[in-house]
Amino acid sequence: MALRTFKVYRGNDKAGELKEYQVNVEEGMVVLDVLHRIQADQENDMAIRWNCKAGKCGSCSCEINGKPKLSCMTRMNSYGPDEVITVTPIKTFPVIKDLVTDVSWNYAQNKRIKPFQPDPKKKDERGYYMMQEDVERTQEFRKCIECFLCQNVCHVLRDHDRKDAFVGPRFMIRLASLEMHPLDIADRIPEVRKDYGSGYCNITRCCTDVCPEHIQITDNAIIPLKERVVDRYYDPIAWVARKITGDKK
């Protein structure tokens, strides 16, 4: 057991400060445990979000010493024994209170995306037929736990605040998961360019770097989507050929 110094943002979107706490830390603890300890012993009203405590729900996103992280998966022993730990809310979304931010914008983006539309021809009374190798790409994207850490680091949203123009990496992979779904027959490519703003991404890969699910957001989702846009608008022959062979990939 060791006494450690923590600094946690306390306040709302308008005003706030980093408050310092001394906490006893035991072997095996993660940052979320320490926050809970502060909450139970020192600051009953400190606002944080969490659910699963095992990296499965994406509730506990925050910035720890400036790095976007899930606090439930960040072990205390990944920091030096005397290092001061500073926990702040994710920066791209307005702070409601302390470490809790207003992420409702993300839910609104999801609602704008054209829903899944399966091809009725690919089914019989036993269900739909898809091969494992054909679903793996979509499954990679469907691992997303909606922690919004990628949204938090994407400079288009974070520094330029173009939430009006770009849906962000989380919803680019949502779009990719639909576009690459072997059963889906809807077409979202025009919207990918026009409404969802694929052109704003300049492939910095910051989103991929922070994804706790290790989803290859940029290489496997965004770049292929951008290629489809290019094919459609700048290389219509390739697109028509693809349409005729029925190959969506």
């Binding site: 399966p118 036993r126 269900g127 739909y128 037929y129 091969m131 494992q132 679903v135 499954q139 779904h181």
Partner: peptide
């Protein structure tokens, strides 16, 4: 099976079923 109709992607058998 209805979940599949709504977009779920379960792991597949060799035949391509859930």
């Amino acid at each position: 099976r209805e979940l599949e109709e709504w977009g779920a992607v379960f792991d597949r058998t060799k035949e391509g079923l859930i």
